[in-house]
Design a protein around this nucleic acid. Structure first.
Lengths: 149, 149
DNA sequence: CCATAATCATTGCAAATGCAATGATATATC
DNA sequence: GATATATCATTGCATTTGCAATGATTATGG
């Protein structure tokens, strides 16, 4: 088995390279890190999400959420409140500033992603989409039997 | 655009989840981290690689290589020498112990990967393989026009 | 109700990481 | 052949991360 042809390696390398392309947009230009970007992304659409829902909607664990949220609040991009019905939780919202930043960044991130995907044939794109969806299901199945995530 | 359906997000999540499954094998059981595993993987096959070739054969940068190699040498799994014809470089080799460890781990890592891939249909696997190969080429193309990697 | 356990988020600390600075060696220039 | 420049690897330092410990709040059992 050659490393370069080992499937998990190819997957990891391609995903990292793709990811780096996008981080270059929202990170280098706007100083957001991946977890922050994901939070903003979710909030820009939902406007308001509590910490439980957030855990379900991302792969971020609670420490990552807590820290990313603290930084985003610091920057004035999101708000964080403690709901009265259950004061262990947090409810996150997005500020006008945060929404504006998202509106500015998203098209650029999408453009960069498209730039890459558009350079693939339609057939290859479809294959990737299908394969990725199947992989997702396969890995989820594995996670159920082996715990953690 | 919904985060959960955003292609780059799906790719990153699937790749991370897959990766985690393998780290559970070589990491949790054998105390290797991803960079160390990659180095061992390369060396187990090539027996002997210099630092330049190493840079070409992985996506690890020189700091990652330097540190992973230092840890592996510390553990007695690889050797590191300075070649006389160019003393700026390093030549890495694998020890008998390192090779034995690799021989023990590889089947388990492959088994875990297969476990996941085998639960996909042959068609989905083929699609994933094709899509991934195309994506690799697409991202490489982009990297050439926008610096860095 | 009171005590205990459960469920969250946050914090502390050690390990890891990224990036710029340094050190070592080799190549190019004069 | 001495000096400047380039190419490596390593190290130092500030930041980030992961994991266990803590703190806050709520649910449960007597």
């Amino acid at each position: 088995m050659q490393l370069e042809s080992f499937f998990p390696y190819r997957l990891a390398v391609a995903a990292e390279a793709f990811s780096r392309q996008l981080i270059e947009v929202y990170g280098r230009t706007y100083g957001l890190k991946r977890e922050e970007w994901r939070l903003i992304f979710l909030l820009a659409r939902a406007q308001r999400i509590d910490s439980l829902e957030l855990g379900r909607r991302t792969t971020l664990d609670k420490v990552q959420v807590s820290r990313a949220a603290a930084r985003l609040e610091e920057k004035g991009l999101i708000t964080k409140t403690t709901p009265d019905n259950d004061r262990r939780l947090r409810v996150y919202g997005i500020t006008a500033e945060g929404q504006a930043l998202f509106n500015e960044i998203l098209p650029q991130v999408e453009a960069r992603a498209s730039e890459i995907l558009k350079s693939m044939s339609a057939e290859d794109r479809a294959a990737l989409d299908q394969g990725l969806e199947a992989l997702k299901r396969a890995v989820e199945g594995r996670r159920r039997s082996r715990g953690k995530g």
